[in-house]
Nucleic acid binder design. Structure first.
Lengths: 339, 339
DNA sequence: TCCAACAATGTAATCGATTACATTTAGTGT
DNA sequence: ACACTAAATGTAATCGATTACATTGTTGGA
């Protein structure tokens, strides 16, 4: 494996000049440059990246922390990040936290040791104080995370307004008893989606019936179980808003177990617009998050930080969209009733 | 940021000793070791990994090449790889090839430049000669890939026997007209699944009706379209084997479009046992691949290579399983008809 | 023609951990 | 107590690219 000094010798110049040809070509005369490039070509020289990274204290690598890579929502964001990263000469280190707090802490070590230049955290669980602390020392960006007091750049959608929109849609279809199964309430994201739901009911003069609000945790299972339980009572909703598509599917399957037709007997709106939302039966009305774009944007922001550019805003809310399909009952034989 | 020489000074020893305490503690007297550890603690010293990696020409990082991270099948394998890697002090670099051959070639550069210690390729598209060439120079392992002439360790399931099993299951349920929509035929994996299907029909004395065999490419869309087309003909199967669950769902939806009931009018068996297989309606009978385990195993094999251990076998076929649910008609009211 | 000013190139120190080799210390057997 | 081996520690070179600073070359203007 030839090194820079070999190239220098062959080209009859110093290593400094070779280095300049590589990293700052304008500082070298054309003739010299050609000699060097020719030597590089002849020897098939590749710079030793480990040496470069060591010397420059940079890695051209970023860390992406994912709660669970198997979740398509995260996988899609990671896809966006990776695309934008590799387009800009950065590599992506993937780390699964399995939602364990200690693994999030562990990643800080990685930054401290300069093993990566920056980090993007998807749905971090660390508290804001800790996150701010990290952010003051290292370039980080958050994705799918909202902050109470935003000091760190983050990319998200407006979870309150999107949930409002979803709930409103059900209300405008004539539903008075709109239920909601929440995500885990220690997550601000879940609280926001809950807030949007409540706001919509309030704005339309509907009382919030706490019996129709259950706590879940985004999963199919929690949607199914909570809905089974709710339908076991004699007090039952005619529509439900779920903060994830998986949950919505669980809810629909629970309804089917109870011989209810969806959307006729129970209208359902989900969240995320995962790939299967359109394949399911009935196809899911849902809020589409621009996941891939969110990933790209997160990386763009991180790149700015890495290049020392200032980021004016911290909140980066991308537009979401209510996608109307069959699970809400707004479409009859391909025709839309409203919206 | 304190460095090793700072620790050495504080502990009153040489850097060599500090280095030994860190990497080869048995070579240092207990007393000295304690002094050094105390100094490390006092200074909150963290070794500079970039320096270490440079000096040792190793990165403790492996590259994982994925055709498409958004595909849950790959995401799950990556999950297994990541788990096993981080357990062993390795980090995982993720690279999406987007099924582009040039990106697979690009990854070889990464290896050449010693930016990673090894690589795991998921469903590589490179030809075997090229793969062998890479493998002779660098530690690599393949996952979800079968090889015609196996010289490189790879982890897979036996795609022929699993497809045989799936098809046989349909035949034993009484079906004579069993169709198949294939994956892309430039992939050995697809050809193997096709082979298993044909073998089963042959073994049970059924002729292969080429009108019932269509070419697709694993996707929902291709399943839907091919099935729509097939059902448009007057020559129609009573059962279909699909080489992916996504495709199976597409097939079922196409059947529904044609007012066919599944499994009564058309029995369907899928492949992969993705998360949604059990949530779909009807729930999918499918071949379960141990994806997470396949990821783990791939990493285990790579670790062996990285540690210079010899790997006796190249073929590592993990057990798959036929999961019987509702889409094949073998279960009636919770009871199994056979198997 | 000569010198100032700048461009181009070279010299050598540097990044921080590792490790071959040298030296010192401890331990063993007679 | 002595010689000798083994254990413990130290010294200093090394990995390869980068870059501050030094030196040489070039150009334009008087």
């Amino acid at each position: 494996m030839p090194k820079m000094s070999d190239v220098a010798r062959l080209a009859g110049v110093s290593t400094a000049t070779v280095s300049r040809v590589l990293r700052n070509p304008d500082a070298v005369k054309t003739g010299t440059k050609e000699k060097v490039l020719e030597a590089i070509h002849q020897l098939n020289y590749q710079p030793n990246m480990l040496a470069r990274h060591f010397r420059r204290t940079e890695t051209k690598t970023i860390l992406v922390l994912v709660p669970n890579i198997i979740n398509t929502v995260f996988a899609e964001i990671v896809g966006g990040i990776e695309e934008q990263a590799s387009k800009n000469g950065y590599r992506v280190l993937l780390r699964n936290t399995a939602r364990k707090l200690e693994r999030e802490y562990g990643s800080i070590e990685h930054l401290k040791q300069r093993q990566v230049d920056g980090m993007i955290m998807l749905s971090p669980q660390l508290d804001e104080a800790t996150l701010n602390e990290i952010s003051s020392q290292f370039p980080i960006v958050l994705a799918t995370a909202n902050l109470e007091t935003p000091k760190i750049p983050f990319v998200s959608i407006d979870n309150v307004s999107s949930s409002y929109k979803a709930t409103e849609h059900l209300i405008r279809l004539g539903h008075k008893k709109v239920g909601h199964i929440t995500g885990p309430m220690d997550s601000l994201l879940s609280r926001h989606r809950n807030e949007g739901y409540r706001k919509a009911l309030g704005d339309y003069g509907l009382d919030i019936d706490e019996q129709l609000v259950r706590r879940g945790h985004f999963s199919y299972e929690s949607g199914f179980e909570q809905m089974m339980d709710m339908l076991g009572q004699n007090h039952v909703p005619t529509a439900v808003f779920a903060p994830s598509d998986e949950m919505a599917i669980g809810i629909i399957n629970a309804a089917k177990e109870h011989q209810l037709r969806v959307p006729e007997d129970l209208a359902v709106v989900g969240f995320d617009n995962i790939r299967f939302a359109s394949m399911f039966n009935p196809s899911l009305t849902t809020i589409a998050q621009p996941l891939f774009k969110m990933g790209q944007r997160s990386m763009e922001l991180l790149l700015k930080k890495l290049n020392g550019e200032s980021i004016s805003q911290t909140e980066h809310l991308l537009p979401d969209e209510l996608i109307i399909r069959d699970s809400c009952g707004a479409r009859k034989k391909g025709k839309l009733l409203h919206n």
